[in-house]
Nucleic acid binder design. Sequence first.
DNA 1: ATAGTCTGTCGAAGCGCTTCGACAGACTTT
DNA 2: AAAGTCTGTCGAAGCGCTTCGACAGACTAT
Lengths: 339, 339
Amino acid sequence: MVTLAEVAQHAGVSASTVSYVLSGKRSISATTRQRVEQSIRLLGYHPNAGARALASSRSNIIALMVPLRTDMYVPVMMEIAIAVATTARTHGYDVLLLTGEEGPDAVRRVTGSGLADAMILMDVELDDERLPLLRGTDQPSVLIGLPAETTGLTCVDLDFRATGALCVEHLAMLGHRDIAVIGEAPAVYERHTGFAERTLDGLRSRARELGVRLLHRPCEGGYDAMAVTLARILDERPGTTGFVVQNESAVEPLLALLRQRGRAVPEDVSVVAVCPEQVAVQASVRLTSVAIPAQEMGRYAVEHLVAKLDGRGTDEVVLIAPELTVRASTGPAPSGRTS
Amino acid sequence: MVTLAEVAQHAGVSASTVSYVLSGKRSISATTRQRVEQSIRLLGYHPNAGARALASSRSNIIALMVPLRTDMYVPVMMEIAIAVATTARTHGYDVLLLTGEEGPDAVRRVTGSGLADAMILMDVELDDERLPLLRGTDQPSVLIGLPAETTGLTCVDLDFRATGALCVEHLAMLGHRDIAVIGEAPAVYERHTGFAERTLDGLRSRARELGVRLLHRPCEGGYDAMAVTLARILDERPGTTGFVVQNESAVEPLLALLRQRGRAVPEDVSVVAVCPEQVAVQASVRLTSVAIPAQEMGRYAVEHLVAKLDGRGTDEVVLIAPELTVRASTGPAPSGRTS
DNA sequence: ATAGTCTGTCGAAGCGCTTCGACAGACTTT
DNA sequence: AAAGTCTGTCGAAGCGCTTCGACAGACTAT
């Protein structure tokens, strides 16, 4: 392993000079800099991460806590994770992957050990156990998702309330009067994951304002669960012509089931999904959807953290405005026959 | 930040004693150990990661390189990543998330800086640029996937050749004589990703042995691409009654399209998928499938690395035997009408 | 010319831990 | 009773880097 000292000797300067060349924290003459840089290249020098972390109390690592569950939103999680990793690298940071398994202890461990300089938390619950710890440390953090109480925290998320409103609006505008919402799995609501409840809020209040009827049913993903849920919905509200689907693993099953029942999309029934773009365009009917801006959230989270670590930036809550893209799964409500 | 020295002082022992209590590398009397452990708890001490890494030249971090592309096998990748992170924690390791973006440089950086003690590489190509670097370092590594040349490397993977053979066998046994293979996206083959080619090998050679006809067509995921691919296949081989699907994002579209053409699964047509269990059971028809043992691979990779880091363990290639689970998507070939 | 200001470089201290050799004391063995 | 062996603990060195204060030399303003 090549060390700083060896580079210094090779370049005929002192160790501190090499360090300053590397960090740019003091001015160095052009000739010296070049000599040092050449030595670094020649010797194939890489600064030792541990030593650097010890001396500077900066690890240049951002911790990313992903949910342990692989049952929901997998593509979104993955996309966020990759956006985080990629963005972090462009700022000279690496990413430590933590699973939710350790829970609050992970936060303690990371902040206590100086393993990471900052944290990004995904899958935040409304009243998350980790929040008091975050507030109690001076380590910067960003939540992807919105807890109940955000004071002293930085959060990014899609504005799910507006998303819900937007979906209802779109369907209402097309004349749909009876709308069913295929929600996330019951467990997601029990856990009080913010986004699910906020979407529902948005859906409900806009539905009330616009005078459309709304039926919300949680649904596990998969074909069988969707079949049961759909049967119940059509039983209870036979006149349903609009669907809002939040659980992406229910999308394709729903389309298949509707087809099976002879209900054409979008002629008889309209479907709006809240899902990543890719899912929307790859579905068997190109879906009118509100995209979940996974990449954008990941990138924002990292950039905010970097700013904070550089002494810039403040706590704030950023809600990304939803955008509804009209594709082939929504159309005017069939005239007359709505209940 | 609480330091070792403070713990030592609090417990009335020397710093080295505390260190030995922590590492267990020398025997410590029960009473001293207890006193130290109590002080650690009381003060909320966490060893500083950087200092530890510097002094011991061990970071207790395992690097995981995931593919940058989010276009293929997302659930599998995610499942592996989570299995890796979880398993690593049980052995006292953390996981650093690297994307393929940096390519070989990432390997250089990690080994050079001592950021991680070992690496796990996913999405290995047959002739991967990173392999020479891995061979040239003494840092342990495990590949998830199989390159062309494995000497000096440790690899885990599903035995895709056997998987291909198994799928053909199952269909042949049921009387299917004309089998179509829905492969991965063309780009995957162009990249020479090992698993795709090996599966194909297994399919072809077993098909030859059993005297069944095989038609292989690469296919991008999604409904539209699948529609085109299916049309071509049925055009060329109208008597096709068996399908093997490797691209999981083609599964649901295929089922929808077959239904649409009035071909019932499994009465008229049988479908075998190579995909994670979850996808198989959640599909609109419960799929006969060979599961991709994502968790098992992730766990194995970590455990092998830990063994190597502990001075045990050797280089070897482990191919996990495929298991075909019969579900509702395969049945006897329709009698008489096969071409 | 003198004092004052930059610029570029160096030396040394120290970050918090691990680990090696030393060694005191208790306990065997002859 | 002397020599040898363990066991448990300590002190000190050192891991490779950052950073602070010092300072020589060049330059500017008076």
